[in-house]
Design a binder for these strands. Structure first.
Ligand code: FES
Ligand code: FES
Lengths: 142, 142
DNA sequence: GGTTTAAAAGACAATTTGGTCCTTATTAAA
DNA sequence: TTTAATAAGGACCAAATTGTCTTTTAAACC
C-alpha cells in the first residue's frame, strides 16, 4: 500500500508529534523508537523537511520538530510528500490517467475505495494518533 | 496499490472473460488488446494458471481460457494469486502482523479502508467487468 | 513421423526501491 | 576559537520488481 519510506515517515512523524511543542528529537532516537533503519529514515525526514511539514536543526541540541501544530498536520500531507499523488488519484489498473469519462472496468468500484482512503488520510491528524500513543491504546512497534 | 504484474493480470483476465465460454485466446492477442508487455504478461498468466483460475493449452489452437464461469471468478482471487495476501491483511505501517489486540496508531482507520477494498475485490466478478466492456461503457486502454 | 504453432521455463538485463556509508555543512557549547 | 554534535548530501550497494530473450515442451495438422 505505502512504500517503506512512507511507513517509516509516518511512524517518525507520529513520534515527533508526541513530544511537547517545540521540543526537538534526534534522528537516532526516532529510528530507535520506530525500529526503522537510521540512515534511510534520515533521507525520508529530509524529504518531509523539504516539504515543510517538518523543521530540522543541526548541531548539538539539533533534531527535528513539527513545522506546525500536530492537529494541523494530517496523514495525507505526509503520504503525498513521500509517495506522491498516485495513491490519491491513480487508476487501479494502471491506465495513464483515471478518467471517469473513459473509465477502466474497475473504475467506479475502485475509485470509491480509493476516495475512502483519501478521505481517511486527509481527516486523520497527527494529534489524534499521538494521543492514542499517549493513552497506551496503540503502539509504534510489535 | 497493485503491482504491474497484477494490473496486467487483471486486464488479461477481463479480456479472456469477454470471450465465449471455452474459447481460447492467444498471448499475443491478449498483450495487444491490453497494451501490456507480451513476455511479462506470459509470466503473469503462468502464475494465474498455476493458481487454477486459468487454463492454458499449447500448440496450434492453443491459448488461455478461464477455468470456470466468469461469474465464479472474482478480483480477489486474481490479486491474491499475483500479489499475495499483504493487501488484504497487512498493517498500514508495515508492522509484521496487523493485530487488533496490539494495534498500530492507524489500525482502526486503516483496517476499515483495507476491509472495504477487500470486500470490493471479493464481490466483483469477472463477469460484470466483461459485461461493462461489452456494453462499451468501460475500456481496457486509454 | 515431421513440421509448425504456442505456452512453459529459465537465464538474463534494466529499473526502481530500499538501505548503508562517508564526507560536508552548520550549530551549540566548552 | 576550537571541539563536538547533528543533519544534509552524495556515492555507493543490495534486493525486489519489471521486462526481454532464448530454449524447451506439448499439441495440432499435414
Ligand atoms: S480509470 Fe481506472 S480507476 Fe479510474
Ligand atoms: S496493526 Fe497496523 S493496521 Fe492493523
Amino acid at each position: 500500500m505505502f512504500s517503506k519510506a512512507c511507513e517509516y515517515g509516518i511512524k517518525a512523524m507520529i513520534y515527533i508529534a508526541q513530544q511537547e511543542v517545540g521540543q526537538r528529537v534526534g534522528l537516532k532516537q526516532i529510528a530507535q523508537v520506530t525500529e526503522s533503519p537510521e540512515a534511510f529514515t534520515a533521507k525520508t525526514l529530509q524529504i518531509l523537511a523539504r516539504n515543510g511539514v517538518l523543521v530540522s536543526f543541526k548541531g548539538p541540541t539539533g533534531g527535528f520538530s513539527l513545522s506546525k501544530d500536530s492537529s494541523k498536520i494530517n496523514l495525507a500531507q505526509i503520504v503525498k510528500a513521500i509517495d506522491g499523488e498516485e495513491i490519491f488519484t491513480g487508476c487501479g489498473l494502471g491506465l495513464e490517467k483515471c478518467d471517469a469519462s473513459r473509465p477502466c472496468p474497475v473504475h467506479f468500484k475502485f475509485a470509491s475505495v480509493r476516495d475512502g482512503l483519501s478521505l481517511m488520510l486527509h481527516s486523520t491528524s497527527l494529534k489524534e494518533l499521538a494521543d492514542g500513543l499517549d493513552a497506551g491504546t496503540v503502539f509504534l512497534t510489535q
